[in-house]
Amino acid sequence: MYEMSNDPGVRDTLSFMIARDTMHQNLWLAAIEDLESSGLETTPVPSSFPLELEKREFAYQFWNHSEGTESSEGRWAKGKSIDGKGEFQYVANPQPLGPEPTTTTTRPNLARYAQNSSHTR
Rank of each mutant, 00 (worst) to 15 (best):
T102E: 12
A19R: 07
P46D: 08
G9W: 09
T103P: 05
E41P: 15
T43S: 11
A59C: 04
E3G: 10
Q115V: 12
K78Y: 01
F49G: 04
G84H: 10
R11I: 01
I32R: 06
G98W: 12
R107E: 14
S71F: 13
R75S: 09
R75L: 07
Q115E: 15
L110Y: 00
Y90E: 00
S48W: 11
E57L: 01
G79T: 04
T69K: 07
I32S: 13
P94R: 03
N26S: 05
T105K: 06
E70V: 07
S81D: 00
T42I: 06
V10I: 13
H65R: 07
E57S: 05
T13L: 15
S117M: 14
E52H: 11
Q95F: 13
N93L: 03
T13E: 13
H24I: 15
L97T: 09
S37R: 03
S72F: 08
L29Y: 02
D83N: 05
S5H: 02
R112A: 08
L51V: 15
F49Y: 08
Y60D: 00
A77C: 04
A30G: 00
A111S: 12
D12R: 14
T22V: 07
Y60P: 00
A77D: 00
E54Q: 14
S37V: 08
A31I: 13
L51N: 14
I82P: 09
S66F: 13
M23I: 04
R107F: 10
Q25N: 05
K78H: 06
I18S: 06
